[in-house]
């Protein structure tokens, strides 16, 4: 009996001594901070009075608070009206969470212009402002298919139906999200889904029968800006990607792969569409189907891109706009 009790007491003593208490850290955010009044410890700043994004420069915002807060920095272009929004939840704003590379969140994209950046903190009525100047705009890295700055290029093939209120022209006005021009597409075609199309063959960009893209479909991204026009029927914008698998210089629809990406334009204003080449599917009348070639997505064998503006013939007038068709590598476009 005594022996057993001794063992038991030793065991309890061992466990009592071995019990751990973690005094160096705690779980979650500090309660003291959460329930204290908000204070700004280091004021809101930007590290450059002027920034040249063309040279891959960046602008870094900074501020420090006494507790974790939800914050938003809104950067406004004085002339372009472009907007960039950076947001986060932290005690500190610094290079890790508030670096601006010249990109836009709300189109158009920034021009060389003066900008103001406003910091807003959730549940705080006051806001904080700093200014900077863009002396060089962000370079768009990638293979440009169409920015329409020089109109319809030689080598592209354009077709537009002869419906009512037709518009399939390159236009220049304040709506342009990048540069000065964009493609305007509109019309009523009550006998067909197709309103108009443009073919972009690889040969329009040089002598090669294929676009200069890499072999990895997971690295190549197709991007485009599409504008949804208010109070019109939804447009369908269909992109077709045709591959010359046997590299004979032509596309055979019966034996080679075509991949498609269809967008229903059900928004108002400009929106960036980005899709990874590996995520493209094959559509027949909008329904997924099996490609007719080898079934492998080969961006390096892409020979022709077609952009079709479609709409339900029973719905009447449809309109949308298009700009900045570009391939980027290793990620979507950051305009």
């Amino acid at each position: 009996m005594k022996k057993n009790l001794s063992i038991l007491l030793c065991a309890i003593l061992f466990f009592s001594i071995s019990c751990r208490k973690n005094k160096t850290q705690f779980d979650g955010p500090s309660i003291n901070e959460i329930y204290s009044d908000f204070k700004i410890i280091d004021s809101f700043k930007i590290n450059k009075d002027s920034v040249n994004f063309t040279n891959a420069e960046t602008a870094v915002f900074s501020a420090k608070f006494n507790k974790i807060v939800d914050w938003t920095i809104s950067i406004y272009g004085a002339t372009s009206k472009a907007t960039k929004i950076i947001s986060g939840s932290s005690k500190q704003i610094d290079i890790s969470n508030a670096t601006w590379n010249g990109s836009s969140t709300v189109f158009p994209i920034f021009n060389t212009e003066n900008c103001k950046a406003i910091l807003r903190v959730k549940d705080l009525t006051d806001s904080f402002m700093v200014s900077t100047k863009i002396v060089g705009t962000k370079k768009l890295d990638g293979f440009m298919i169409a920015d329409f700055e020089t109109g319809i290029k030689t080598g592209w093939t354009k077709f537009a139906q002869t419906g009512a209120n037709m518009d399939f022209q390159v236009k220049s006005d304040s709506i342009a999200p990048e540069g000065k021009k964009y493609l305007s597409m509109a019309g009523t075609v009550n006998w067909d889904w197709l309103i108009g199309l443009i073919d972009f063959p690889a040969k329009a960009y040089g002598t090669s029968p294929v676009f200069p893209l890499g072999t990895n479909p997971n690295s190549e991204y197709f991007n485009c800006l599409i504008y949804g026009v208010p109070s019109t029927n939804p447009s369908l914008v269909l992109f077709q990607f045709r591959e010359d698998e046997n590299e004979n210089g032509t596309f055979d629809a019966n034996t080679e792969d075509e991949y498609d990406y269809q967008v229903t334009v059900d928004w108002v204003g400009w929106k960036l569409i980005s899709v990874k080449y590996a995520d493209l599917g094959y559509l027949v009348n909008g329904v997924p189907a099996t490609p007719k070639g080898n079934g492998l997505r080969n961006p390096n064998k892409l020979t022709k891109i077609s952009m079709l503006h479609l709409a339900n013939p029973n719905d009447g007038f449809a309109s949308s706009k298009l700009d900045l068709m570009i391939f980027t590598q290793n990620g979507p476009l950051q305009p």
Partner: peptide, 10 residues
């Protein structure tokens, strides 16, 4: 507690 929750106090 072994580890504090939002504070070092247990």
């Amino acid at each position: 507690e072994i580890k504090g929750q939002g504070t070092f106090a247990l």
